[in-house]
Design a protein around this nucleic acid. Structure first.
Lengths: 192, 192
DNA sequence: CTCGAATGTCTAGCAGTGCTAGAATCGAAG
DNA sequence: CTTCGATTCTAGCACTGCTAGACATTCGAG
């Protein structure tokens, strides 16, 4: 059955190629530029091939989102790990989060802005998404303060970061003072 | 020159009709359903008429955003006005903001999520947008705390609210605990 | 080695999008 | 009543996501 295995591998490889190409194209020219035709052309197949891997464009966005969630979790954990003490950890986490959003705007959009057909905050939520939230919880839970549920605190802190990330990138907030806003957020929200 | 004046009036009326219809359609079925054809059909004109009023769909979104900004400013001021003391004012403001976002999702999107071709946080920013921020600043500035710039504090608080609003509506956050998240935010961020 | 079947891929097309050139129509002034 | 300019519409472009059905390629049985 080695033949089937080979085909299986090739198929999986092509699927990765689709996701990687979609992500690349989205980062280069925005998600609007990721059309099925352009994507098909870049992977050097015809459009219908995309639909033999994914139900549609939405699912491709979802796949990029999952990939991004894994990376974000890793980035957040790395930042938290490299800092000493709860306070420094939270600051590092916040910076890492915003940095990720700024460096991977298309991936960030796929995760939190666009509809990738994924379930959030539920049981059927895909593992990478749960894990990304868990990565935040690990560092933020310990500074929630007395009588405040760690999960609730994490959600709130996350929402604040998300607001900063999106409003800044949408040019609703001037980018210069980002660092000061982060400091304010950490100062006030985290119970050192 | 009464003829020209009448035409002028009719034109202005039709423009308001376009904006109102676009808003209505967006609230009913989402912005994706607001196509130039559907919009034209609803106002009982052909599509090119839209382009004699607006450069394109983007500008229509922008017009809805401006309309919404005025209403949001009013809602925020009304809430702040009906509360006694800085602390209660901030809580009322936060609730009013999230309430506006929840009740007018399409308008909220037009303001902060979509591209309406408007400038933000600049000199050429349209008056209604400046005023909406000013409405926030009026109540939030007084609880910024010592040594914290009121504008910066307002931006940060606003970003947190925006994060809650968008993540909740995009089903990234479970809607049940919104009230508790708001309390946490006000408790920690506002220097009573 | 040949040949039917199954798998995989592509061509061509649908109904929809935002937007616009040029034809048709309307209304006001002479 | 006619003329002419402003207004509105018809028809069309190039694009979108998506899919049916034709085509090619590869596989396994004889």
């Amino acid at each position: 059955m080695s033949v089937q295995e080979r085909k299986e591998r090739e198929r999986a490889g092509r699927e990765r190629l689709i996701v990687a190409t979609a992500r690349e194209l989205a980062e280069q020219q925005g998600w609007d530029a990721v059309t099925t035709r352009r994507l098909a052309e870049r992977i050097e197949y015809s459009q219908p091939v995309l639909y033999s891997h994914f139900r549609g464009k939405r699912e491709i966005i979802g796949a990029v989102a999952l990939e991004g969630a894994g990376e974000m979790a890793a980035a957040v954990r790395a930042a938290a790990c490299s800092a000493d003490g709860p306070r420094a950890r939270v600051t590092a986490l916040a910076r890492a989060y915003l940095d990720f959003a700024e460096r991977n705007p298309a991936v960030y959009d796929a995760m939190f802005q666009l509809d990738g057909g994924l379930a959030f905050a539920k049981e059927e939520t895909p593992e990478p998404l749960k894990d990304a939230f868990a990565a935040l919880l690990e560092s933020l839970g310990e500074v929630a303060g007395d009588g405040v549920h760690p999960g609730l605190f994490t959600e709130t802190f996350w929402a604040a970061l998300h607001g900063l990330a999106t409003l800044t990138r949408a040019r609703r907030l001037p980018p210069e003072d980002t660092e000061r806003r982060v400091e304010l957020l950490v100062d006030r929200l985290a119970m050192v």
